[in-house]
Design a protein around this nucleic acid. Structure first.
Length: 422
RNA sequence: GGAGAGGUGGCUGAGCGGUCGAAAGCGGCGGUCUUGAAAACCGUUGAACUGAAAGGUUCCCAGGGUUCGAAUCCCUGCCUCUCCGCCA
């Protein structure tokens, strides 16, 4: 959420920022309502001041045994006026709030300009894609042949875009989760958490999924609860409505959670395989820090995510999303894309973003500076990594001519010593 | 699911329908004392909006209601605790 003050004082620069991300909201209605809102507020406050004064006079008069009827009658009218003004005020406030919640974040100045994915800026590459002396198979072919991925039965149990992992496939997924958590809680200093996978509307609004992206979420029928589309939601909301101490920042959390996405509007994309499922596992990292720290912390979090791929020896590249491709809440985002041999393409496996104070405003996460001032902090998060897509990368990059898969060395202890799936 | 109790500032915890943003204690900060520290003592210490400032408005879980006036009374919801039942 952008501060109302910014809209009032710098509307032009807001509009420019939004235009960069292909967003062209009209602020006319907002500006009109804002004026009316301020006017009403003043009138209400004046009336309330009068009422508060009377509230002090009345008991005094009563003590002195003086008549209060006139005053009481006057106040009856004042109260009616207050109610009338407040009714209108409340309606406007609700509408204004809803409008504010639908405005995306402004891009940071370091974000490359561009209209779409095609304009994203490659920052660096790591590792060399293997040069197979045979035609690289897709991970679903490999997985089905080895009997470790069963898409048919996944669909039978629930529907399209669900999968059943079996045997060493399930074991591989679990090994990756444990490996990632161990790495981030160990060398990288994150605190492990295990949050709820179902959250309320308030939490979803806090991180920016609501009110705008309701259609992307799974709803529970009997409650006003929703399944998380990413661990970012529960992790960021850990400190919702709190005032933290500057000396405690930065705070870093990591968690493994399943993620649930409707994938409405992505018909026809990645219909086969693990890449786009309604349910997938992800290890998510979230940081809370001061504005001064946040961009350095973003780089650090990005490095933490990259380290996973390096230790698994999977080739990848880092891309800085252009203004037109930024997510709703993000001020700056790096995607990590892993090499997928069957597609001869780099595909997203992690997204690391600095939200600055956008989420902190929505979720009311603040900190007290050393000087004693209370202000919003910055939130950062990123996948470390999407687990299903890591399985994709391992199956495809580690495939052998005979159809077997060589398990990366670092994972073998997590696989009970298994070196190969065949 | 049934019965009961409760939700107040960083924490613990008072609070009669009016003078309560709210006692007291703890914690925090500043000071006195001390070579330094502790103890003791003194002072200070919530947030949002608005205003140049003085000030004003709001916030005692949330939302409604009663009233000239609500932290205080009523209703609904959410949450916590205790007991019973059920259960991984």
């Amino acid at each position: 959420m952008l501060p109302v003050k910014t809209l009032r004082d710098n509307l032009d620069s807001v509009k420019k920022g939004l235009a960069l991300r292909n967003s062209d909201l009209s602020f006319e209605q907002w500006a009109k309502a804002d004026q009316r809102q301020r006017q009403l507020k003043q009138e209400v406050e004046t009336l309330k001041f009068r009422r508060n004064q009377a509230s002090q006079e009345i008991p005094k008069l009563k003590k002195e045994k003086q008549p209060v009827d006139t005053l009481l009658n006057e106040m009856k009218i004042v109260s009616k006026e207050i109610t009338a003004f407040e009714t209108e005020l409340k309606q406007i406030e609700t509408e204004q709030e809803d409008f504010l919640l639908r405005i995306p974040n402004l891009p940071h100045t370091s974000v490359p300009l561009g209209k779409s994915e095609a304009d994203n800026l490659e920052i660096r590459r790591w590792g060399k894609p293997a040069d197979f002396p045979f035609e690289a198979k897709s991970h679903w072919e490999i997985g089905e042949t080895l009997g470790i991925l069963d898409f048919e039965r996944g669909a039978k149990i629930c529907g399209a875009r669900f999968v059943l992992y079996r045997g060493l496939g399930a074991r591989l997924e679990r090994a990756l989760i444990n490996f990632m958590l161990d790495l981030h809680t160990g060398a990288h200093g994150y605190t492990e958490t295990l949050p709820p996978f179902i959250v309320n509307r308030n939490s979803m609004t806090g991180t920016g999924q609501l009110p705008k992206f309701e259609d992307d979420l799974f709803h529970l029928k009997d409650n006003d609860y929703l399944l998380i589309p990413t661990g970012e939601v529960p992790l960021t909301n850990i400190h919702a409505d709190e005032i933290l101490d500057e000396s405690d920042l930065p705070i870093s959390y990591v968690a493994h959670t399943p993620c649930f996405r409707r994938e409405a509007g992505s018909y026809g994309q990645d219909t086969r395989g693990l890449v786009r499922q309604h349910q997938f596992n992800k290890v998510e990292m979230v940081k809370f820090c001061t504005p001064a720290q946040s961009y350095a912390q973003l780089e650090q979090l990005l490095n933490n995510a990259e380290t996973v791929l390096q230790k698994l020896n999977l080739p990848y590249r880092i891309v800085s999303l252009c203004t037109g491709d930024l997510g709703f809440s993000s001020a700056k985002t790096y995607d990590i894309e892993v090499w997928v041999p069957s597609q001869k393409k780099y595909r997203e496996i992690s997204s690391c973003s600095n939200f600055e104070d956008f989420q902190a405003r929505r979720a009311k996460i603040r900190y007290r500076t050393e000087a004693g001032k209370v202000q919003h902090l910055h939130t950062i998060n990123g996948s470390g990594l999407a687990v299903g897509r890591t399985v994709v990368a391992i199956l495809e990059n580690m495939q052998q001519a005979d159809g077997s898969i060589v398990i990366p060395k670092i994972l073998r202890p997590y696989m009970g010593g298994v070196e190969k799936i065949s």
